[in-house]
C-alpha cells in the first residue's frame, strides 16, 4: 500500500510547492493578460488511482484545494473547484474512455494510454476545474465576458504547461 501511495504523496507535495511558491508569483502582463493564471496542481487530482472510492478522491481533492487556498488567500475557491472536478472526474474518464475500457489497476498516465488520450483528459478536466475556479472568484454571471476571458486564458496556458511538464519529466514512450 505504502509503495503504491508514495508517488502520489511525493507528487502532491511537489506540485503544491511548485504551484504556491513559483507559479503563484508569475504575472504575465499588466493588461488583459493579468487574468491568466497557471494551475498545475490539478494534475495531482487527475492522476489519483482509479480504484479509490469516489468519496476518498473527493476528500483528497478538497484538502488539496484548501492547502492551495491557504497560500492564495482565497478560502474556499480552489477547495470548491477541486471538489467539483473530483466529483466530475469519472464522467470525464468515461467520455474519453479507450476502446478496451479501463482496468482499475491501470495508472492514469500518458505512458499507459498515449498522448492523445492524455491531451484530451487534461483539456476537459482543466476546463471544468478552471471554470469553477473563475466562477467562484468572480462570483457573478453579470460580467460573463470577463469570466470567459479569465477561464479561456488560464485554461490554454495551464493545459500547455501541464502537457509540457508531463513530457519533460516522464519521457518514457
Amino acid at each position: 500500500m505504502s509503495q503504491e501511495l508514495r508517488p502520489h504523496i511525493i507528487r502532491l507535495i511537489f506540485l503544491i510547492l511548485l504551484q504556491v511558491l513559483i507559479l503563484r508569483q508569475i504575472q504575465l502582463g499588466d493588461d488583459w493578460l493579468r487574468f491568466a493564471e497557471i494551475l498545475i496542481y490539478p494534475l495531482v487530482l487527475m492522476m489519483l488511482p482509479m480504484r479509490w472510492s469516489p468519496a476518498i478522491i473527493i476528500l483528497v481533492a478538497f484538502v488539496t484545494g484548501l492547502i492551495i487556498d491557504l497560500f492564495y488567500d482565497t478560502p474556499g475557491v480552489h477547495a470548491g473547484a477541486s471538489t467539483f472536478s473530483a466529483f466530475f472526474r469519472p464522467v470525464v474518464l468515461r467520455i474519453i474512455s479507450p476502446r478496451a475500457g479501463y482496468d482499475p489497476k491501470q495508472q492514469l498516465t500518458r505512458a499507459t494510454f498515449g498522448m492523445s488520450w492524455m491531451a484530451s483528459y487534461t483539456a476537459i478536466f482543466l476546463f471544468v476545474h478552471i471554470l469553477i475556479v473563475q466562477i467562484l472568484t468572480v462570483f457573478t454571471f453579470y460580467y460573463w465576458g470577463e469570466l470567459l476571458l479569465r477561464t479561456g486564458l488560464s485554461w490554454i496556458l495551464s493545459v500547455v504547461i501541464i502537457l509540457l511538464a508531463d513530457i519533460i519529466f516522464n519521457p518514457k514512450s
Binding site: 478560502p75 474556499g76 477547495a79 470548491g80 466529483f87
Partner: peptide
Amino acid sequence: GLLTFVLLELLSVYLV
C-alpha cells in the same frame, strides 16, 4: 461519492 461531494462543495461555497 455524491454525499461527500455535496457536503464539501457546500462547505467550500460557505468558505468563499
